[in-house]
Design a protein around this nucleic acid. Structure first.
Length: 531
RNA sequence: GCGCCCGUGGCUCAACUGGAUAGAGUAUCGGACUUCGGAUCCGACGGUUAUAGGUUCGAAUCCUAUCGGGCGCACCA
């Protein structure tokens, strides 16, 4: 909708036009401050320019009014235009918000180590990534969701060791000496028991079988992770194993060319050349590759697949890592601009205003699965998508359990359910409702219709700015308008029933579509939990 | 010490990326049910946008400095 207005204005004014929504809707639906930027050039006051531009506009079917106010030019969309757009949307639900964007994007996110179940920090990155994925796909991009599995390196050795010790300690009741760092938690006990029944006790006691145990365990842990993600409606297209990449190492190293050099018996990446603080070790003295080596081969693999754009979502604690990976991309001969790295910041949970207790059982972390169980996947997704990903988030789980308007998921769902209830109570046929025209609406209905039609531009804005919180913000505001409208105006049994129900259908469509882009299924009925 | 992120009513967050009177929820106080779901709605209270300068028609947003907080500064991932 904004797109169409923008194109029209660009043609009319023969230049790019900034289009915004007036703070006060009584001014109109859209506005442009173009007169301010022309003022200097034309040596005239913005007021005069705005007046001239507005009056030169003439009549256009898309607008019912074009007016200049205090230097702004305000546009009011015509009812005919909005009715036509709404009718199209209702008849083409799956196309509503679609923008025919082209381009193949590789989106890598979560990529948590296969050494334990997902915690709450992973969950934020997961929700952020999956929401971006859904938004981008809606716009038409061809996006592959990828998970990089770090199944090589020290942490896998440590997984094998930890699991043996756990087995000796809690399954075989042996005395063990714990190292300084090891993996722990309920899942380790369960894995140890499983290992015992699958392979016998030797697997838990024989140091020579640690590696074998580790490789078995990381697959098990991955199953756990995939299941946790699935519970939140998050699914990946591809999983890339770090261990499987090293066969390619020699070839990729040659490709790095001058980007690497030998010193002190080690191989270094000359990352300072591209702004990194220091050069980084890629292969240690003993010949073992560092984590960076894997990431270089992995990113080479990404680029060789020829996507148009690459997005990585990393925990904010990895921000220092960005420079070296981008440097590697350039040494490999690729455009580092195509590699976009987004950060997802820390999460801290509260419960009744107090810090959420990390359970010993879980291994002193807050598990994603525990929170999903406590507040539900919908609430988790909604709240995690509600704040800019690159700033720290703090929220209280108790708020998300309430069933009133302090809980945004409830509030938005209730708006949808209200509409569904109205429709079921009306005697009108769908055809009658759809055949009615959205015209001669009062101001509240007009405002609600316009709000409902904004979803496509919210999707566009949220995806292109990578700020997914714009979607939940919009849904809360649309739901609020709906609730108020419902309170102020009766619909069933009035002479305007058909067209107002068509308006309701449009609002419901935007809510349902918006929620689905956050991986949440809109509710048709609200059922109170039994206490 | 260096780098990245951040600082907006008591609390949790917005503000169309430089635009009109800085908006929601929560908390507190006060209202609205013979009507489609009151799981809702309305009103009041609450702000020098951390501080100080600067840039311009215009700044919460951009620049500089200071203060405060988080994260990082591995041959760990």
């Amino acid at each position: 909708m904004k797109q169409r207005v923008s194109v029209l204005l660009k043609a009319q004014f023969e230049r790019d036009v900034v289009l915004e929504k007036p703070k006060d809707r009584s001014f109109g639906h859209y506005a442009t401050p173009i007169a301010f930027s022309l003022a200097k050039e034309l040596r005239k006051s913005p007021m005069v320019i705005a007046d001239e531009l507005a009056s030169s506009f003439g009549n256009h079917a898309m607008f019912s009014a074009v007016e200049a106010t205090k230097g702004y030019i305000n546009f009011r969309l015509s009812e005919a235009f909005m009715d036509e757009y709404a009718t199209w949307a209702l008849e083409n639900e799956t196309l509503f918000g679609h923008a025919e964007r082209e381009g193949r994007i590789l989106l890598e996110f979560v990529s948590a180590n296969p050494t334990g179940p997902l915690h709450i920090g992973h969950a934020r990155g997961a929700v952020y990534g999956d929401t971006l994925l859904r938004l981008g796909r809606r716009l038409g991009y061809d996006i592959t969701a990828e998970y990089y599995v770090n199944d090589a390196g020290n942490q896998i050795d440590l997984l094998g060791l930890s699991l043996q010790l756990e087995g000796q300690h809690s399954v075989l009741n042996m005395e063990v000496e714990w190292p300084e760092k090891y993996y722990r938690g309920e899942y380790m006990t369960i894995l140890a028991e499983e290992a015992l029944s699958a392979f016998g006790s030797d697997i838990l006691t024989n140091p020579d079988r640690q590696k074998e145990l580790a490789l078995w365990a990381k697959d098990k842990v991955m199953e756990l992770i995939v299941s946790d993600l699935g519970d939140a409606n998050i699914h990946f297209d591809t999983f890339v194993s770090e261990a499987s990449l090293y066969d390619d190492w020699d070839r990729v190293m040659k490709k790095l060319g001058d980007g690497v050099f030998d010193s002190e018996g080690k191989l270094w990446l000359r990352s300072t050349e591209y702004g990194d603080e220091k050069d980084r070790v890629v292969v240690r003295e003993d010949g073992r590759p560092t984590y960076l080596a894997g990431d270089i081969v992995y990113h080479n693999r990404k680029f060789e697949q020829g996507f148009d754009h690459y997005i990585n979502i990393w925990g904010a604690d990895h921000h220092g890592y960005i420079a070296r990976v981008k440097a590697a991309a350039r040494f490999l001969g690729y455009d580092a601009e195509k590699l976009e790295i987004l950060l997802s910041q820390m999460v801290s949970l509260l419960k009744d205003g107090e810090p959420y207790k990390m359970s010993k059982r879980a291994g002193n972390v807050i598990l994603m699965s525990d929170i999903v169980e406590e507040i539900g996947a919908d609430a988790l997704r909604f709240i995690f998508a509600s704040k800019k990903s690159d700033t720290a988030l703090e929220f209280d789980v108790e708020t998300l359990k309430k069933q009133d308007n302090s809980n945004p998921v409830y509030y938005v769902n209730y708006a949808h359910a209200r509409i569904m209830t109205m429709l079921s109570k009306s005697v009108l046929e769908t055809e009658t409702i759809m055949a009615s025209e959205l015209k001669a609406l009062h101001a509240d209905a007009d405002a609600l219709l316009f709000e409902a039609l904004l979803l496509p531009e919210v999707i566009e804005d949220a995806f292109s700015s990578r700020q997914v919180q714009k979607l939940p913000d919009y849904l809360k505001s649309l739901a609020a308008r709906l609730h108020k409208f419902y309170y102020d105006h009766r619909i069933i049994g009035t002479k305007d029933e058909a067209k107002l129900l068509k308006l309701m259908l449009m609002v419901a469509l935007s809510i349902r579509t918006g929620l689905s882009l956050m991986g949440i299924t809109a509710k048709d009925r609200m059922v109170a939990d039994e206490k």
